[in-house]
Design a binder for these strands. Structure first.
Length: 891
RNA sequence: GCGGGCGUGGCGAAACUGGUAGACGCAAGGGACUUAAAAUCCCUCGGCCUUGGCUGUACGGGUUCGACCCCCGUCGCCCGCACCA
């Protein structure tokens, strides 16, 4: 980042009464002071009310980015504000340190994942420290620390013991060339990102957490999370996907199929549409599909094609809907002469329901597209209320709403709800092969959590495979199962798998030769309980129950919206599982949740089009002539294209390094800018002009405060209740009330606007105090107002606040100072100004006593000239008076 | 494809959740100070016509005394989709 040199010169010589504020001097000085006095170290035994504020811990990718600055600045404001409000605040930091990038770095740069990770942590810790965050660093840990993952293995064993862990077959993306499992993001257009080989799906036996044991509870408890964004609760609700339906068995036609295929079970939420059924669709992995494939090469080929589509749901559903007739037919449950074909379809998932559906084309768009493609009948069975049964048809759009049944024999005329019940009742009472043909069933979309990863850089799953005893848990006394250091990534595949000795172990049960599990855990496991570990980070047990119970839930959790579903749902599950295993006594880990927006930046491209190259903002010079902005390379002057505003990413090079910003402007400026202007839940656009303006404001505050300081130092701080200084005190106390309210709601941008307003209000008084003699009452009020101002911005710009605090003669650290109390008499107004509308349009104003009665207001309004002229002698139809708000005269 | 969200001046936004649309800031323009520049200070700033008014919160409808806010529909952009973290 290149900055105009004048910004970098902080002169030592005195200019007028003060010098420029120099963050490069002040910030390290105050950080050292805080550190020395250990004021951010949290005592678990402190008797005050607790407040736990946590930001999602970072992945140690190398350097912090602006998104981190924004996230941690928000958390720090909350922490500092709550500390001032008298809480015992826990505000810890750690590292989400396992994961793929370390392995990729190992392959590309021949560096050990551990070395790479800890080096990154060291760099990023330094960067975070330069931000002046009020963190308790004594609680820091990384999830790749043996001390941490040992406890995670211990939790795993407890879960296993409790029946919350099991193994089953599950599919993975397999790269046949690299002989390795690929993450979804490593599969690009169906091919491995490194090898380019067509990706296959393979079945592996993998470990799962039984999150589905808690489906209903995870859903129900969302109602209690009233300090979560509504959208996140809704997303989780949809993800869990509770539905009420019917499992329904369809008898297959003919006797040539084996016993197990005498019927096919489907799950449906729309049994009412049964008479619109025109096909059954089963997943490529359905047992019947496999059976047919064994003797039918075309079906086998098609099933294989489906398997190549990748494991991601998005890929599956975006793909063209395809199917293939298996030749098998089934009988309609209400008419044994009605035969319906069974297709294999690429959009039916074995994981959901029973892996088989019946298709009703008139009532489901996907089924309709499918039916049109394969020329299957489309019979409308539901029409909207009030429709005409004779003329209602379905063309290109299915009708999936509620309504009235048609073309459905005994259901005709019934509502969809009644038809559902009727079908369920009848088929539950019908026997097929000695069992009811249908059963009511609550189904969840939520699947169990597969945690097996065939990778090195993760927490080893602590079990042993013995030929005699099967799967044997590692005894707790043998923990940790430590990752071996002597590995390399010369060959594809999992280094643990091919390690010469690590796998070899004696069976803890029978003592014979056995093998270690070489799968490691999904990194989401690591982040599912770190918030609990922070409460007692050095304990022998995963958590100290009483301590965890005292600190949890996290009062305010702050992080990106991208974690709205998985991380938060897994953490909610984990807390429940830890409760079942006796580690904690609560089930919801996060009381308050806040999802912040991204940091975005303009992009710059040299040579337009496909082969253009992206250019970093630091290499750019911007010009504006006649309202047109143009960008040039600073070095050569060559013009570059200004592209769209996008999330900061390395690939688009539209990144700004926080280190550069902090070095040029200081941490306070960076923090202030990240919190000002944009509401925290929305994306914020990083602009040079914005940072510079923030920095100017920092300087402005310092100049005003330091110039007036000599006049303020000697006087006692006291608000003015009357006289010349009254407006000064009123402005300060009104701002105090408003900013506290803003901080309580995480409205940082609004708090910043209030701080601007207060500075504007105090600018003239401060300048006056700096330049001329003011009386003591005035100076006292001004000092009190200035102290309030400094306290208001202290959570955002703590270093500048400490500097100002000291300058105006306050003792102690502002980081330790209690939040000031506002005076009621200084914030209430005696009169109110009401806008007056005529027929809903504003025509003027009325200033009247605050406590004026409704009839007083009406009388005063009717006397206003613009009202009398609008009325022209007539009586108003109505006068709407909203107290303290508005008056509307309806003519 | 499914799920979720967002859309207000040239720009970031505010509007106490149905009550003055545009607070506060950025950018721009004008002025003061200065030998000059920077910094600083003052003024203007949604659009259209004439002081006063008309119009305006993505677009089209609706409810209401009153709609950025609630309802229905349309368009555009963003995020998630279970092995990225």
């Amino acid at each position: 980042m290149k900055v105009a040199p004048k910004f970098l010169i902080y002169r030592n010589s005195r200019i007028m009464a003060s010098e420029r504020y120099n963050p490069r001097d002040a910030e390290p000085r105050w950080q050292a002071e805080w550190n020395e006095r250990e004021i951010f170290k949290t005592d678990n035994d402190d008797p005050r009310d607790k407040y736990y504020v946590l930001e999602m811990f970072p992945y140690p990718s190398g350097r912090i980015h602006m998104g981190h600055v924004r996230n941690y600045a928000m958390g720090d404001v909350v922490a500092r504000y709550k500390r001032a409000r008298g809480y015992n605040v826990l505000h810890p930091m750690g590292w989400d340190a396992f994961g793929m990038p370390a392995e990729n770095a190992a392959m590309q740069n021949k560096i050990h994942p551990k070395e790479w990770t800890y080096a990154n942590i060291a760099t990023m810790r330094g960067q975070l420290k330069s931000m002046g965050l009020s963190l308790d660093w004594s609680r820091e840990f990384a999830t790749c620390d043996v001390e941490y993952y040992q406890r995670q293995q211990s939790l795993f064993l407890d879960f296993l013991d409790k029946g919350l862990v099991y193994r089953k077959q599950s599919k993975v993306n397999w790269d046949p060339v690299d002989q390795t499992v690929l993450a979804n993001e490593q599969v690009i257009d169906g091919r491995g990102w490194r090898s380019g080989a067509l990706v296959e799906q393979r079945e592996l036996t993998q470990w799962f957490f039984k999150i589905t044991d808690f489906s209903q509870d995870l859903l129900d408890s969302l109602d209690e999370l009233d300090q979560w964004p509504e959208k996140v609760r809704l997303m989780q609700k949809n993800w869990i996907g509770r539905s009420e339906g019917l499992t329904l068995r369809w008898e297959t036609v003919g006797n040539e199929l084996p016993e197990e295929f005498r019927d096919v079970t489907v799950y449906t939420t729309r049994p009412d549409t049964l008479f619109g059924a025109s096909f059954l669709a089963i997943a490529a992995d359905h047992p019947l599909a496999k059976y047919v494939a064994a003797s039918n090469p075309a079906v086998a080929d098609f099933a294989e094609e489906c398997r190549r589509a990748g494991t991601s749901l998005a890929a599956l559903e975006t793909a063209e809907k395809k199917g293939m007739d298996t030749g098998v037919k089934v009988r309609h449950p209400f008419d044994s002469s009605w035969e319906i074909p069974v297709y294999i379809a690429n959009f039916v998932l074995m994981d959901y329901g029973t892996g088989a559906i019946f298709g009703c084309p008139s009532g489901d768009q996907r089924d309709l597209d499918f039916a049109r493609k394969y020329d299957l009948p489309v019979v409308p069975v539901v029409m909207p209320e009030g429709g005409d049964a004779a003329s209602f048809t379905v063309g290109d759009t299915a009708y999936d709403g509620d309504g009235v049944m048609i073309n459905s024999r005994f259901l005709d005329g019934k509502s969809t709800t009644d038809a559902f019940q009727e079908v369920a009742d009848r088929l539950s009472a019908t026997l097929l092969g000695g069992k009811p043909q249908a059963e009511r069933k609550v189904n969840f979309r939520l699947r169990d959590w597969g945690i097996s990863r065939q990778r090195y850089w993760g927490c080893p799953i602590p079990v042993i495979h013995c030929d005699e005893c099967g799967v044997v848990p590692v005894p707790k006394k043998d923990l940790p199962v430590q990752l071996p250091d002597d590995i390399n990534f010369d060959k594809p595949g999992n280094p643990l798998d091919r390690h010469p000795t690590w796998r070899n172990v004696k069976c803890p049960h029978c003592g014979k030769d056995a093998r270690r599990e070489t799968d490691t855990m999904d990194t989401f496991v690591d982040s599912s309980w770190y918030f609990a570990r922070f409460t007692a980070p050095h304990a022998d047990e995963p958590v100290i129950t009483a301590t965890a119970d005292a600190w949890l839930p996290v009062d305010q959790y702050i992080g990106g919206i991208e974690h709205a579903i998985l991380h938060l749902l897994y953490s909610r599950f984990f807390t429940r599982a830890m409760r079942e295993t006796g580690h904690v006594n609560l089930k919801e880990p996060f009381k308050g949740l806040f999802t912040q927006g991204m940091v975005v930046h303009e992009t710059y491209k040299l040579d337009d089009g496909a082969n253009g190259t992206w250019v970093q903002p630091s290499e750019i010079r911007l010009e504006e002539t006649d309202g047109v902005r143009r960008a040039f390379l600073a070095e050569s002057g060559q013009e570059v294209t200004i592209g769209s505003i996008e999330k900061m990413s390395k690939s688009k090079k539209n990144v700004v390094d926080p280190d550069d910003i902090i070095a040029s402007y200081g941490a306070d400026t960076a923090r202030f800018f990240m919190l000002s202007d944009s509401p925290p839940e929305r994306d914020v656009i990083w602009t040079e002009a914005g940072v510079e303006a923030a920095h100017r404001f920092v300087q402005r505050i310092w100049r005003l405060v330091s110039e007036a300081a000599p006049a303020l130092r000697g006087v006692k701080a006291a608000p003015a209740e009357s006289g010349e200084a009254l407006p000064v005190s009123q402005a300060a106390h009104k701002a105090l009330l408003a900013v506290a309210n803003d901080y309580d709601r995480l409205g940082f941008n609004k708090a910043v606007a209030r701080v601007y307003e207060l500075v504007n209000a105090l600018a003239a008084p401060l300048t006056k105090a700096a330049n001329e003699k003011v009386d003591e009452a005035y100076a006292s009020a001004l000092r009190e107002a200035t102290q309030i101002l400094v306290q208001l911005f202290a959570p955002i710009m703590p270093h500048l606040a400490e500097e100002c605090w000291k300058e105006i003669g306050c003792t102690g650290l502002i980081s330790d100072a209690p939040w000031p109390a506002y005076l009621e008499s200084l914030v209430v107004e005696n009169t109110v100004t009401l806008p007056v509308q005529v027929n809903g349009k504003k025509r003027g104003e009325l200033t009247i006593a605050r406590d004026a009665s409704q009839s007083d207001v009406e009388a005063a309004v009717l006397a206003l000239d613009f009202v009398t002229s609008a009325l022209a002698g007539a009586t108003p139809k109505k006068i709407v008076v909203v107290p303290q708000r508005i008056v509307n005269v309806v003519v």
